[in-house]
């Protein structure tokens, strides 16, 4: 089965989100299997989450600032 090529931008975005989610889960499962323990995974994931959230927050702040100008 082939996925339709000509899809609306919204459908393409949903498809990309699904792909990213599956890839994220795959990376997570691989990390859990490979790591020395779930403690290490949790610790690194917490750091990663904080960094990414911080990144989003800073980016959002910069964008709002630009829009105000």
């Amino acid at each position: 089965m082939r996925l339709p090529r000509n899809v609306s931008p919204a459908a393409a975005e949903r498809r990309a989100l699904l792909f990213d989610a599956l890839l994220g889960l795959l990376i997570g499962i691989s990390a859990i299997i490979v790591a020395a323990g779930i403690g290490v995974v949790g610790f690194i994931a917490l750091l990663g989450l904080l960094l990414v959230v911080l990144w989003y927050v800073i980016e959002g702040g910069l964008r709002r600032r630009q829009r105000r100008r």
Partner: peptide, 14 residues
């Protein structure tokens, strides 16, 4: 976004 999803999944399991 992928990294964020991976982190959230790992944190949930932990």
């Amino acid at each position: 976004r992928t990294v964020l999803i991976a982190c959230v999944f790992c944190l949930a399991v932990a």
